[in-house]
Computed example of a mutant assay.
Amino acid sequence: MKKTLAKKNLGQNFLISDLVIDQIIKYLSIEDNQNIIEIGPGRGAISFHIFNKTKNYFGIEKDQDMLKYLYPKIDEKNIILDDILKINFSSLFEEKFKLVGNIPYNISSKILEKIVDNREKFISVYLMIQKEVADRIVAQEGRKAYGRLSIFIQIFFEVEILFEIPPECFSPKPKVVSSFIKLVPRKEISYDIKDYESFSNFVKKIFNSRRKKIANNINVPKKFSNPLLQERAEDLSINKIVMLYNLINNYG
């Protein structure tokens, strides 16, 4: 079979390392007939291993040219030709499922946003992503990588970087190192946030100019005063950011 070239516009980098594939399958720890959804199965590097362990599998593939690799070993009904950003997960599984994928770098933020929005549907999430994005996800206050992404993923998920993947493990080779990460939805959210959309806007504003003090990034009610306003957002823990948001929101 003549191999189809990777498409830049789809951010395709195909995993070719058997060692990395074995590591991923080990970490997935798939139980018999467990529900699995894979983002972008591509040429089936990990898809075939997953399908051998469970038939409760769906691969969401946007590129029709990949079907010739997948159909010989995976039933057609298990491959959904569609954009992951348009998929309604509930139409595939009513019960919780594991999500895994080598996600395109150019839409990683949008996919992570979808994952946050659908957090109650997952047993766990395993992603191959750009190392820089993984570092932002796990970053703590005081680190350069700490920001909006760190806050919103960590509020809803326990996060762990499992291992790094060098460019040589992909074809074509990306220009950056990748990371394989695990997200597990928190059973209880320990932060008092009643309006997440409003909180999201607040976080966006306080990180708008990272080197400025929070007081210079947002408008606060007259006469409202708090020492945290004189801090930079990147130096505040999630707890302190939530506390400041609630103090401002409830003032007066």
Rank of each mutant, 00 (worst) to 15 (best):
R186D: 02
D63V: 01
F89K: 08
L183C: 10
S171E: 13
N13W: 02
I137C: 03
G252W: 01
N201T: 12
I151F: 09
I155M: 07
F51S: 11
N208P: 00
G147Q: 01
K68E: 15
R148V: 01
P41L: 15
I79K: 12
I115Y: 02
K213W: 07
P172N: 07
R232W: 02
I241F: 08
E231K: 15
F48R: 06
F97P: 13
I80W: 03
K86P: 00
N208Q: 14
K110C: 03
M1D: 10
F170K: 08
R148K: 10
N201R: 15
D32R: 12
L5K: 14
F58T: 00
K212F: 02
E94Q: 12
I111P: 15
N250I: 05
K26R: 05
Y69W: 11
N33H: 04
I46H: 06
L228R: 12
I214M: 02
S90H: 12
L127F: 08
I103K: 02
N9P: 00
E76M: 12
I30Q: 04
E160A: 10
I50V: 13
M128N: 10
L228M: 15
F202N: 06
N239F: 15
K96M: 07
P227L: 05
A6L: 13
N246C: 06
N208C: 03
I193T: 05
P174A: 00
E164W: 10
K53T: 00
T54H: 08
K204F: 09
G147M: 00
I189L: 12
P227A: 06
F224S: 06
K62E: 10
Y126T: 10
I46M: 06
S237V: 09
T54E: 08
Y196D: 04
F202D: 09
Q154A: 10
P167T: 03
K62D: 04
Y126L: 06
D65P: 03
N9D: 11
F97R: 00
L19N: 10
E160I: 11
